[in-house]
Computed example of a mutant assay.
Amino acid sequence: MYIAITRQQLGNNFRGSVRDFVNYLEKENEGKAPGEQEHYFNQEENHIDVERVIAEIDANTAKLKKHEPKFYSLVVSPSQRELEHIGNDPQKLRQYTREVMKTYAASFYRDRQVTVGDIRYFAKLERERTYSEKDREVKENQAFASKILELQNRTRAIHEGREQGDVAKLREQIQALEKEAPHQLQGKRIVPGMAKKGHQSHIHIIVSRMDATNTHSLSPGSKFRTSETILHGVKVKQGFDRDKFYRAAEKTFDRQFGYRRNFVETYHARNLLDKDPKRFFTALLGLPHNERQAAKLLLFKAGINIPNIPVNKAQLAYKALMQLKRGIGKALESGSIGI
């Protein structure tokens, strides 16, 4: 399970409307009949109109300064393994989203408990994902892409009379490179913008910075995890505990759908990889045989081959660890492993 939280994207000036972001999320609805389109939903309602989403988020900005984000975006991305477990069922994903937003509210550190009723949000299911420059397949195809571009530029120069050469031969070289690229999809070289195969369902959530009453700020971007400050002579609790949120969201999925999560799929493993790679690999190699083999298979599918490194920490080669960490880190970034 991969969950990302990002603030409104407008540089240092956040006075703009949510409309552009909402319009961007409408891309999968283009060209579809009304009955086939995905609508926004919240904790209680389905089939929420786009204009209502824009109006309510834009109006819920009391007391916010121009340099403060007016809304945040959450992306909830189950792995293909998790999606297969629930049959890629859109209704189950909506149910899960509503549970996730309960854990989101509970992760705020305030003087009183924050509940999902205090949160103003709208969510939307998307079924497709496309390759980007971050994906391993695109990166490993890049050397071929560069050579192809160079040959295409030479072909264009010959057509325009700026160079001399054999266009037919250059085209043959381009075709050969297209076929030699290591990552293909339906006989074509994988490039940015190409739709990914398999289950790719995920949820986009727009969350207002202000609470549902438009009186209190609830920022998940706070640099304070759980802290206290003095405001007008009174001690006030503040912050948002992202670790608590991510762990709870993961456990919610497992409990709700009876999912048995492998070690490498856990938020704990990702944290361990970031902060102490030696402990990560010691934990990985110390798993029971069946779980370790399943973990290695998941990593192998993401393009990472785990060598037979001894479990003893003293015998772990630092250089090998760093190379593996970079490989796994790239897979995590691109969503190849659903943590």
Rank of each mutant, 00 (worst) to 15 (best):
Y109Q: 08
K134Y: 11
D274V: 14
P69H: 09
I148F: 01
D211A: 01
H47L: 12
V138Y: 13
E133P: 01
T155E: 15
P90F: 01
K63H: 09
N214A: 04
K301D: 10
I205E: 04
T97N: 14
P220T: 05
V75W: 00
K251V: 00
L324V: 07
N308T: 11
A55S: 12
S107E: 01
Y104M: 06
K134D: 11
Q80Y: 00
K65F: 07
Q293C: 01
E126T: 09
Q186F: 13
S208M: 04
E133F: 13
P182E: 08
M1V: 06
G338I: 06
L285K: 14
V191L: 14
Q37E: 12
Y96K: 05
L285H: 15
Q200G: 05
S227Q: 15
L272Q: 14
S79D: 04
L273G: 08
E137Y: 11
D243L: 09
A168N: 06
R279V: 12
L332C: 07
K301M: 12
N305S: 14
A317E: 13
I3S: 06
I86L: 07
K179D: 07
R270E: 10
A331M: 01
E172A: 11
A59T: 07
R15L: 12
A176R: 13
Q80V: 06
I54C: 02
I148W: 02
A59G: 11
Q142N: 08
A176L: 12
R19A: 14
E178W: 08
F21K: 15
V22G: 03
T115E: 10
G35L: 07
T97P: 05
A123F: 05
Q8T: 00
D89G: 05
A62N: 13
R225N: 08
V114Y: 09
G239M: 02
E36A: 15
Y72G: 03
R136N: 07
K92F: 05
A320N: 07
R171W: 03
V75H: 00
V167M: 03
R242W: 03
